[in-house]
Nucleic acid binder design. Structure first.
Ligand SMILES: [Zn+2]
Length: 569
DNA sequence: CGCTTTTGACCCGCGC
DNA sequence: GCGCGGGTCAAAAGCG
């Protein structure tokens, strides 16, 4: 995206490429030379731009190359270590291990992520450039890191079981992009639209009507009142929308007193099991690791939306970052290297509609839960990469932990959705408990960063975690992973009875977009909008999520009344 | 005691 | 201008 960003991001006096018409015009000797001159100028500038872009591309390519090298090297190291570890560890209860999967996954992931670390420096650069070129608002907080790393998760030890079902490699592409310029856009929200009366009176007396905030709507099956997305929400209102027996609830983020983020939750009238959550705005404060996934997703979506793209993708759309040979797509090449494709959950789809009111993008993850056995790949549609006019790729990683019956998980880069309507199996609680227990006990002994790890890993981890940017990225990545991990834990339950190891690893997905111009990027985390340096703990925080995991949070503010929703059913 | 939820009132944009 | 519907406020109640 870097490449593209500059080119398209900044509405410079660039001539729109599609207007080669200019040439024809020239021929036409229409009116005055002025016209010609102007055209020429435009051409000139365009060329210049092109040149710049190319240069940048080159640079980025090189960076990428190096990154990849590093990555490979580290990967090897990692594998070696892991292998050793695996041997060392007498196999704990296999069962437990499986569950802890999540844990392990996390850990694994962490390490994996480590591999991607180098990029940071480079990426930063990229980011900077981006900012320069594309940052609409200079406010771009530096914390906005854009980094892309590609990791593969090899769950050697743990995954042994899983392996069968899943190929050993999972790759996770992460790209944190803070800059979500959209922020700017969204940030506007504060100008409380209406209430000028007594409410926000002075501030911006004239809110210059901000561009409407983008909204991201997520549809997912969920039993609980609200999806546990890791954020803290306070309910501030409830209304019964006409045409839907179910009340719509309004929540506000309490992460920060000034956080503009809001969400409204409502059940689908047609299918009560579907929960429709609409997010609006970007967080202006650090988020718990567990919350970054959703946040990044929404912001990414918002970005995409705002960038002006209308999309509606069908499940089977192939996004694939087909290698657009153009030099302008490093991102793509990056991905292609890793030969990764991103998938959305089964028939999940993304639809962005710019309604008069608010531009809204909808992620529909509700599609049929159908059998998730056998070939996952068959059930999944590749992520639609086609965002017509968008220059921002869109990411989708969601963890809806709260649901007991649903499971979203990523396997091998594929997101699988599992729905278990028959809670006949072991109660979630047990699993949860086990999970926790396991966490405490087993987790420690696992190849974590904490305990007896080979220095290598420890060192690597340290080093990595030291880098703030990385932290953010990591946090995001882990978040998503973990978040889903929680989910997966839930899944475990379902798996308990099944043979399908689908749930094992969950990670986030990112998508790449490479439209005609091919600048694909996945960006997944734009972690916080506003806290650059605060994130230090993030790296570590990533592991905290245990608490914030989707598992039912008894206390979670928003989740309390639980089933309360008695829908008319 | 602090925080969240509940809930009716209020505000505002929009269509008629 | 009026009514409707969506969204928000804020007082009161509930909870740990
Ligand atoms: Zn927030």
């Amino acid at each position: 995206m870097e490449a593209a960003a500059p080119a398209f991001g900044r509405p410079r006096p660039v001539v729109k490429p599609e207007k080669p018409a200019g040439d024809s015009d020239d021929d036409r000797d229409s009116p005055s030379n002025q016209h010609l001159l102007i055209k020429e100028e435009q051409l000139e500038s365009a060329r210049t731009e092109m040149g710049e872009v190319r240069e940048e591309n080159q640079r980025l390519k090189m960076s990428l190359g190096q990154i990849m090298k590093d990555y490979e090297a580290l990967k090897m190291q990692f594998l070696g270590i892991v292998g050793r570890e695996a041997k060392k560890l007498p196999e704990h209860n296999k069962e437990q291990q499986q569950r802890p999967h999540d844990d392990q996954t996390e850990e694994t992931e962490l390490v994996s992520l480590t591999l991607g670390r180098y990029p940071m420096a480079e990426k930063k650069k990229a980011v900077e450039e981006k900012n320069i070129n594309g940052g609409d608002k200079e406010e771009v907080v530096k914390q906005a890191l854009s980094l892309g790393l590609n990791c593969k998760f090899e769950q050697e030890s743990t995954a042994a079981t899983v392996k069968e079902a899943n190929s050993p490699n999972r790759s996770l592409t992460i790209s944190a992009d803070h800059e979500t310029k959209e922020d700017a856009g969204e940030t506007n929200w504060p100008p409380s639209k209406g209430l000028k009366t007594m409410r926000s009176v002075d501030d911006d007396a004239l809110p210059t009507n901000p561009p409407k905030r983008a909204r991201v709507c997520v549809r997912a099956r969920c039993e609980t009142t609200t999806m546990n997305d890791g954020c803290q929400w306070r309910k501030y209102g409830q209304k019964i929308a006409k045409g839907n027996p179910c009340p719509r609830a309004y929540y506000r983020c309490t992460g920060s007193p000034t956080c503009p983020v809001r969400k409204q939750v409502q059940r689908c009238a047609d299918d009560m099991s579907i929960l429709i959550t609409t997010y609006e705005g970007n967080h202006n404060h650090p988020l718990p690791a567990s919350a970054t996934a959703m946040a990044s997703t929404t912001s990414a979506a918002a970005s995409m939306l705002l960038s002006g793209s209308s999309t509606s993708s069908a499940p089977n759309t192939t996004a694939a970052a087909s290698s657009s040979s153009s030099s302008s797509s490093h991102a793509l090449s990056f991905y292609s290297n890793s030969k990764q494709n991103f998938y959305l959950p089964n028939n999940s789809s993304i639809i962005s509609s710019t309604s008069p009111t608010h531009p809204t993008i909808t992620l529909d993850l509700t599609s049929n839960p159908s059998s998730s056995s056998s070939n996952p790949s068959t059930h999944f549609g590749k992520f639609p990469s086609s965002f017509p006019n968008s220059r921002y790729p869109f990411t989708s990683q969601l963890d809806f932990g709260s649901s007991r019956n649903n499971v979203l998980s990523w396997n091998n880069g594929v997101l699988s959705y599992n729905r278990n309507n028959h809670p006949t199996t072991t109660p979630t609680n047990n699993i949860y408990q086990n999970y926790l227990q396991h966490q405490r006990n087993t987790a420690m002994s696992l190849p974590h960063q904490q305990p007896p790890l080979p220095d290598t890993i420890a060192a690597a981890t340290k080093a990595i975690t030291a880098d703030p940017s990385f932290q953010s990225a990591l946090a995001a990545a882990l978040t998503s992973i973990i978040g889903s991990g929680g989910t997966s834990a839930g899944t475990v339950k379902s798996s308990a009875r099944g043979e399908q190891p689908l749930f094992q690893l969950t990670s986030t997905a990112t998508t790449t977009t490479n439209k005609g111009n091919g600048c694909g990027t996945s960006f997944l985390s734009n972690i916080t909008t506003a806290t650059p340096s605060n994130s230090p703990p993030t790296g570590n925080m990533a592991f905290v999520p245990a608490n914030s995991l989707p598992f039912s949070n008894p206390k979670s503010a928003s989740a309390s009344p639980g089933d309360h929703i008695d829908l008319t059913n």
